[in-house]
Amino acid sequence: MTNTHTSRPGEKTNVQKAALAVGAVFLLVGVLGFIPGITAPYEELGFAGHESGALLLGLFQVSILHNLVHLLFGIAGIAMARTISGARSYLLYGGIIYLVLWIYGLLIDMDSAANFVPLNDADNWLHLFLGIGMIALALALTRNKDRDRSHTAH
């Protein structure tokens, strides 16, 4: 059985591959948010705030700020996937950030200035699933590492 926590030079562990994949998806989503047709009505894409009427894939409310956040989050995932600890941290803390965003989206009035990103119901539910999924990946793909440490400590 292969240990997923040690890797040969140039070989990525599963947690690194997961962080890389998640980062790449966020990068792609950030780019897609700036493409007319995939984001529509594109002429309603605002910089920030709930007034931005553009929807990515016809579902997710986006703005220039929202797209930039996706791009930065994607770049962070790709960069942090270089190390096992960075990949785990990206998935774990990124997942926590998305759960906080989910709660924030549930609590704010969607038509208020507090909805500055902006978020809609589809974004909120996506944030819940992203948060749970990212945390699950971080924990599941590094659980043997913690067990290995406890065995070597005895």
Rank of each mutant, 00 (worst) to 15 (best):
A18C: 07
V69S: 04
I78K: 05
L57H: 04
F60W: 06
A19V: 03
L59S: 12
A79T: 03
V100T: 11
F60N: 01
L128C: 02
Y93H: 03
A54W: 10
G77Q: 08
A113N: 11
F73C: 07
S85Q: 14
A114G: 03
V25P: 08
I78S: 05
G74S: 00
I84P: 07
L55I: 07
F34T: 09
D111G: 07
N67Q: 01
L130P: 00
A54R: 12
T83K: 02
T39G: 08
F116Y: 14
L130A: 10
N115E: 12
K12F: 12
Y42V: 00
A136P: 03
G53Q: 01
M110C: 04
H70W: 06
F34R: 12
L27N: 01
A48L: 15
V100G: 09
A40K: 10
A122C: 08
V100K: 10
I135P: 04
V25D: 12
Y93G: 01
A19N: 12
L28G: 09
A138D: 11
A138C: 13
K12M: 09
E11Y: 03
Y90G: 09
L28P: 02
I96F: 15
E11R: 12
I96C: 09
G131A: 14
G74K: 00
G95P: 02
M110A: 15
L139K: 13
W102T: 13
L137F: 15
V117H: 08
L72V: 14
E51P: 05
T13L: 11
I103F: 13
I35N: 07
L32S: 13
I132F: 03
A87L: 01
L68C: 07
H50P: 10
G46V: 12
G131F: 13
D123M: 05
N115C: 15
L119F: 15
Y42R: 01
